[in-house]
């Protein structure tokens, strides 16, 4: 129906939840990110008469008030990922073979970065340490890498993963990354992983800026577009990365922070929120989000409250059983062994 349904491998997550190898065509528009509007972009809403598959009840309420119809609250794909049994959630090794990787996935807390990062914030020394330890930072195409960072080999969560606010292909972000990096270094629990949007990750200067503070810099990769370049395991990788860290932080309340809260991370929102160009007034700006969730804008957020907000905004209670999800997405009825043996027909 809509190529955005495949962004971040959302459709693939839902398909795996239903026990399918590949996602059939979804009849509807899947909300693709956390949204304080009606679930969709203010400029390019779904086609009329097509179901709006949103994460939580908030977008439905706001959309209905604006006269839109056809909402189905189904919960976020990330909530389905959490509900998928562990074996089906594990990223297969074959998924990494021969892929063009843009990430530089050193694990947080590896010896190479430890000396700089743990000691704290002296940029000069960490630059040195980081450069010594990390493989060539640009791109390691086709490299095999552990899907789970090394720090989680012992199952312990360590450090902080920080998501600087990002623009996208059509909207740029303005802000002082150096000041932000300094603030992160001052506040975040080391070791720190900076996760950049893939567009920003392509700029070596930006990467090196963060690395100069001793941070490990990664990206989760592009979200795909027009069914090209989709990583079906995008969310799985992100979940593994989040679970490797004790803290998730960002300079704005965003999807990744909610994911982190849902994945059991402690939450912090601090740092210059930066500016995005041409922001649509329908969203109400960063100020509106601060008014709605003031408690979440703090370096240390109450974990229970953060988890509760994440549950609400990711629509965890709306997660449907596989058969119903297939029905809601317009997929053919699931054929499952259990059903067949019980069938009397």
């Amino acid at each position: 129906m809509n190529h955005q349904n495949h962004w971040y491998g959302h459709a693939h997550v839902l398909a795996r939840y239903c026990g399918l190898a590949a996602p059939p065509r979804i009849w509807g528009y899947l909300q693709h990110g956390w949204n304080v509007h009606d679930g969709y972009g203010a400029d390019d809403g779904p086609a009329p008469g097509v179901p709006r598959l949103v994460w939580s009840d908030g977008p439905r309420r706001r959309g209905m008030l604006a006269g839109r119809r056809g909402y189905r609250v189904i919960g976020a794909p990330f909530a389905y990922l959490l509900a998928t049994p562990e074996p089906a959630r594990r990223v297969p090794l074959s998924a990494d073979h021969g892929r063009r990787r843009r990430t530089v996935p050193t694990a947080p807390g590896l010896p190479s970065t430890v000396d700089g990062a743990r000691r704290g914030t002296a940029p000069a020394s960490t630059v040195d340490g980081a450069r010594r330890g990390t493989p060539p930072a640009s791109t390691v195409d086709g490299a095999r890498r552990p899907t789970v960072p090394a720090s989680t080999v012992d199952g312990a969560r360590r450090g902080t993963i920080y998501y600087p606010f990002h623009g996208w292909e059509a909207q740029a972000v303005f802000g002082d990354h150096r000041a932000l990096a300094a603030e992160i270094a001052a506040r975040a629990e080391p070791p720190v992983t900076i996760c950049l949007y893939w567009l920003e990750f392509r700029h070596p200067q930006l990467r090196e800026l963060y690395e100069s503070f001793g941070f490990r810099v990664i990206t989760h990769g592009p979200r795909g577009g027009h069914y090209q370049g989709t990583d079906p395991w995008f969310l799985n990788r992100q979940l593994a990365e989040l679970r490797a860290h004790r803290w998730v932080a960002a300079n704005r309340l965003c999807t990744a922070v909610l994911y982190g809260a849902a994945a059991g991370c402690r939450v912090g929102v601090y740092g210059d929120p930066m500016m995005i160009e041409n922001e649509h007034p329908a969203y109400g700006g960063i100020a509106r989000i601060r008014r709605l969730w003031p408690e979440l804008h703090a370096p240390e957020v109450d974990p229970g409250y953060a988890a509760e907000v994440a549950r609400q905004e990711l629509g965890v209670r709306h997660v449907a059983p596989p058969a119903e999800l297939a029905d809601l997405l317009g997929w053919p009825p699931l054929r499952r062994p259990a059903t067949r043996t019980e069938s009397v027909a």
Partner: peptide, 21 residues
């Protein structure tokens, strides 16, 4: 109306699937 029944962290099975049957 709006109680959140499940605990998400660390992948506790949130959902219903199959349990009823």
């Amino acid at each position: 109306p709006d109680a959140a029944p499940t605990a998400v962290p660390d992948g506790a099975p949130t959902a219903v699937p199959g349990a009823a049957w």
